[in-house]
């Protein structure tokens, strides 16, 4: 997986599929990344979360945990798990092209 082609562009990803260089990510890659995570269509709510992930990462150097997402993204915990059933913070980070958020809560 380290080298992968997404939306026609070669990007660097780690063994788990997270981007190692978030600058390589473009919005055009998101639908394809989402499909490989089992999400067929990205809704406005999905995008709200993805953009929040990107801006948190840009500001803090790390992606938010689910708790932070639930408190500050405007999308509730319940909705987050409906949007990203395989784990909101982890899945959204993968689709948003940022490293996996680290945090126990």
């Amino acid at each position: 997986m380290p080298n992968a082609t997404v939306a026609g562009i070669t990007v660097d990803r780690n063994d788990e599929g997270f981007f190692t260089d978030p600058n390589q990510w473009t919005e055009a890659m998101a639908p394809e990344l989402a499909r490989s995570e089992g999400i067929d269509e990205l809704t406005d709510d999905h995008w709200r979360v993805l953009k929040f992930m990107r801006s948190e990462y840009a500001q803090k150097g790390t992606g938010p945990t689910v708790r932070v997402l639930g408190k500050t993204s405007g999308v509730s915990i319940k909705e987050l798990y409906q949007l990203f059933p395989k784990g909101p913070a982890k899945t959204a980070a993968k689709i948003a092209g940022i490293p996996k958020p680290r945090g126990c809560i």
Partner: peptide, 11 residues
Amino acid sequence: LIMANGARAEG
């Protein structure tokens, strides 16, 4: 609780 929450966060 932390383990349950962490499990869900990992899907």
